[in-house]
Measured scan of single mutants.
Amino acid sequence: TGYYDVLGVKPDASDNELKKAYRKMALKFHPDKNPDGAEQFKQISQAYEVLSDEKKRQIYDQ
């Protein structure tokens, strides 16, 4: 599964769309709200870390 799929956004998503999707998913799977969501929360955080950084995103998109 790709990072875009993890966040539920298209590859041409804007920074604002990425942030909005990340916040929505992070709230849904945060371990405090969803004890079984810890692994998914890590994936969401990693996806956002890469896609929100312009240089990392360019490398990922290659």
Rank of each mutant, 00 (worst) to 15 (best):
A21V: 03
N34V: 06
D36I: 06
N16L: 14
K10Q: 08
S45T: 13
V50L: 05
L27P: 07
L27F: 08
S52P: 02
K42E: 09
Y22V: 01
D61C: 05
A21Y: 03
Q62G: 08
S14H: 03
K24D: 15
G37S: 11
Q62W: 07
P11M: 10
R57Q: 04
N34F: 08
L18P: 01
H30C: 13
L18I: 15
P35M: 06
S45D: 06
M25F: 05
F41C: 07
E39H: 06
K56W: 05
V9K: 01
F29H: 04
F41T: 01
K56R: 13
K10V: 04
K28C: 13
Q46K: 12
L51C: 04
N34A: 04
L51S: 00
V50K: 04
E54Q: 13
N16H: 14
N34G: 07
A13P: 01
K28P: 07
Q58A: 13
D15W: 13
D32L: 10
D61K: 02
E39G: 04
R23H: 14
M25K: 07
D12S: 10
K56M: 12
D61M: 06
M25W: 05
F29S: 04
H30W: 07
K42M: 08
G8R: 03
D53T: 04
I44S: 02
Y48G: 02
Q43T: 08
V6R: 05
H30R: 10
R57C: 05
V6A: 03
A13F: 08
K19G: 06
H30P: 02
T1E: 10
R57V: 03
E17R: 00
Q46V: 13
G2T: 15
D15S: 14
S45P: 02
Y4C: 04
L18G: 00
Q46L: 14
I44A: 05
N34M: 06
Y60G: 05
V50S: 03
Q58P: 08
Q62I: 09
D53C: 10
E39N: 07
I44G: 02
Y60M: 04
Y60W: 04
Y3H: 03
N16M: 14
D5F: 08
E17V: 05
K28H: 06
K10C: 15
K20R: 13
I44H: 00
Q46P: 01
D61G: 05
Q43A: 13
I44K: 00
A47H: 00
D53R: 08
D36Q: 12
D15I: 15
N16S: 13
G8F: 04
D15Q: 15
I59K: 12
Y3W: 11
S14I: 03
K19Y: 14
T1K: 12
S52W: 06
K20H: 10
E49D: 10
D5W: 07
D32P: 07
H30Q: 06
K19P: 00
A38F: 10
F41H: 03
V50G: 02
K10I: 03
Q58R: 14
K19S: 09
